[in-house]
Design a protein around this nucleic acid. Structure first.
Lengths: 151, 151
DNA sequence: ACTGAAGTGGGGGAAAGTGGGGAATTGGGG
DNA sequence: CCCCAATTCCCCACTTTCCCCCACTTCAGT
């Protein structure tokens, strides 16, 4: 499982250095092959390729005549891109994905279980603050039926 | 599986360059033979020929006295057109299909599992934004009974 | 301080994208 | 039946982008 946040720099060519601590694991688990796609709250998702394959299979199995299912397929599969770590452990993020998540220089590389999330650093900080803010996650969680979670 | 979006240019002769990364796979899987047809969201669908054959078989098997079934058959089978990649990896899109999807210059070539979708670039962007918009895919997905998907 | 690993930057070459000319084929009209 | 026009196909050439590799810098640990 991946966890923790690392602030990494995007260079002028749009390359992102994967934190060194993950590189070996990624070489083993997916031969350095990863898939980036968008997320609906304007960050990017980064999966080891085998992990992504299973998600894609689930998405592909959705009914072809359901408009919502099609919208989801277009969003996630349509915007997915395969990326590979170079010899320096960097991945090249396509321009349109950088634009999508407003990544310019400082990027939060966040472990999220079996995947990573990539956030523009200010956006990441803002999210964190908002989650701690006045409304309170607790009430939201209860409202969403998650009140019985034990952390 | 095909995935990801590439922006390619349609030249004045109506030819569309297939992204290089797919060419070899398409030469192997279908000997460069593809089938283009229309989609009900005003984009074009592009299938490797064997893939199309199985779709066509499914459509043909629909009940002949069902009006909806017949409409679907006319739409998808009736507008289908075989195309072949030339030595430069381009396909020639018939005029009426270009018109149908309003393809003029910049075209989004979108991988969608076993097929591709071809969109006029502005239309593709608009779709994407709409999917992220105020309603949000999350609510739609929940309403459609897809809430249990884990991405 | 020295050494090795990680981070960062950049240049060159190959390949992909793009455009256009001309031959060949097809279809329609005289 | 023939000819002309329009479309398609094949080939060639140029431009641009991207990817791979190398080198320098920075940092941390011994």
């Amino acid at each position: 499982m991946f966890r923790g946040v690392f602030i990494v720099n995007l260079d002028v060519k749009g390359r992102l250095a994967v934190p060194a601590k993950y590189r070996e694991r990624l070489q083993m688990s997916c031969n350095s092959r990863l898939v980036v796609t968008v997320d609906r709250d304007r960050c990017l998702l980064l999966y080891p390729e085998p992990e992504w394959e299973s998600i894609e299979a689930k998405l592909s199995a959705l009914p072809a005549f359901d408009n919502t299912a099609r919208a989801i397929q277009r969003l996630y599969i349509g915007n997915a891109q395969e990326v590979e770590m170079d010899a320096q452990g960097r991945i090249l993020l396509p321009q349109y994905l950088r634009d999508f998540a407003s990544l310019d220089k400082r990027v939060a590389f966040v472990g999220q279980g079996s995947k990573f999330e990539l956030w523009d650093e200010p956006a990441w900080n803002a999210r964190n603050e908002a989650a701690l803010g006045d409304a309170g996650i607790g009430e939201l969680a209860t409202a969403a039926g998650l009140g019985s979670l034990t952390l």
